[in-house]
C-alpha cells in the first residue's frame, strides 16, 4: 500500500465569476519514509496541492488516499482523526503567540484529550529532540525564526504522525538556519521513518534532503520520480520574481552551496 496516493486531482477556484484552475489532473504516489519534494515557482499551485493532502483544501475532483483511506469519503470527525496522523509545519511557523513553548508543543495533545502530565512528559522529550529544552518556558516572540520552526516541528511530532507536510518550511529562514532545519528533518526521518512531503521554490532544499521530487508548473505536474532520474530545470527555479531578481539569484546560489556543505 502506498503511504499517499493522489489520483487525477484537480482543484479550481471561482474568483469573481471566473474559474481559475489551480491544479489539474495531478497523479503522484509517496511511499513510506520518503522525503518527497514538490518544487515550483510562486503561483504554480504548490500550497494548494499540499493542503489537499490533509483536506485543508477540498479537491474539486480526484482522490487523495492516505494509507488506504480516501479522505473524500470521511465525515468531519473521521477527517479530524485522520489529520492527527498528518502533521504540518508552515513557512511562518504559526505558533500560538500567547502560549509558551511547552504549551505549544502540548497543544495537539490537549486537543486529543491526552492527560496534561502525560502530554508534558512527551513534550519535553520532543523539545530534547529538536534541541530546545532550555526554552520550554519562553514565548514564541522571544525566539528566533529557526527556533520557532524547531518548536513547530516538535509540536507537529507530538501526536506521533505518520506523515509530515512541510509548507515552505524554510523559506523564511536564512541559509544556515535552513540547513540546520533540513538536517533535523532528515534525522527525524531516519530515526522514526516518518514520511515527509515538502513544497519549496528552492532547488537547494530538494537537493539537500529529498529522495523523490515532482516539478509543478502552472498547476500541472510536469515531471516526477527519484531525484537522480528527474531532469531538474535548475536555472528556472533560481529566481522568485520582481526587481530584486539578480540579488535573489545570487543569494540563492550561495544558499544552495551552504546548504549542500552543511547537510553534506
Amino acid at each position: 500500500m502506498h503511504e499517499i496516493e493522489v489520483k487525477n486531482l484537480s482543484k479550481s477556484f471561482i474568483e469573481k465569476d471566473i474559474r481559475v484552475d489551480a491544479l489539474s489532473n495531478i497523479n503522484l504516489t509517496v511511499e513510506k519514509s520518503d522525503i518527497y519534494g514538490i518544487i515550483g515557482m510562486s503561483g504554480a499551485g504548490k500550497s494548494t496541492l499540499i493542503r489537499c493532502f490533509n483536506y485543508l483544501e477540498r479537491p474539486t475532483s480526484g482522490q487523495v488516499i492516505i494509507n488506504g483511506k480516501e479522505l473524500g469519503q470521511l465525515n468531519e470527525n473521521e477527517l479530524r482523526a485522520e489529520r492527527t496522523k498528518i502533521a504540518m509545519i508552515f513557512q511562518h511557523f504559526n505558533l500560538l503567540q500567547q502560549k509558551n513553548v511547552i504549551d505549544n508543543v502540548i497543544f495537539p495533545l490537549t486537543i486529543q484529550g491526552v492527560k496534561k502530565s502525560e502530554a508534558r512528559a512527551k513534550a519535553f522529550e520532543l523539545l530534547a529532540t529538536v534541541g530546545l529544552e532550555e526554552k520550554a518556558n519562553a514565548y514564541p516572540s522571544q525566539l528566533s525564526g529557526g527556533q520557532q520552526q524547531r518548536v513547530a516541528i516538535a509540536r507537529a511530532l507530538a501526536s506521533n504522525p505518520r506523515i509530515l507536510l512541510c509548507d515552505e518550511a524554510t523559506s523564511a529562514l536564512d541559509p544556515q538556519t535552513t540547513a540546520s532545519i533540513l538536517s533535523l528533518l532528515k534525522r527525524i526521518n531516519k530515526e522514526t521513518g516518518i514520511t515527509i512531503v515538502l513544497i519549496t521554490h528552492q532547488m537547494s532544499v530538494v537537493k539537500a534532503i529529498c529522495n523523490k521530487v515532482a516539478v509543478l508548473e502552472a498547476g500541472e505536474l510536469v515531471e516526477s520520480g527519484n531525484i537522480e532520474d528527474v531532469n531538474l530545470p535548475e536555472d528556472k527555479y533560481f529566481w522568485i520574481d520582481g526587481d530584486s531578481h539578480l540579488k535573489k539569484r545570487k543569494d540563492q546560489v550561495n544558499n544552495r552551496k551552504e546548504v549542500a556543505d552543511y547537510v553534506g
Binding site: 479530524r80 485522520e82 489529520r83 502533521a87 504559526n94 505558533l95 486537543i111 501526536s159
Partner: peptide, 18 residues
Amino acid sequence: VDPGVIEAAKAMGAGNTQ
C-alpha cells in the same frame, strides 16, 4: 487572530469549538 494559527489548529485535527 493570525489565520495561519487557525489553519495550524485545523491541520492538527481541532474542531471548531476547540
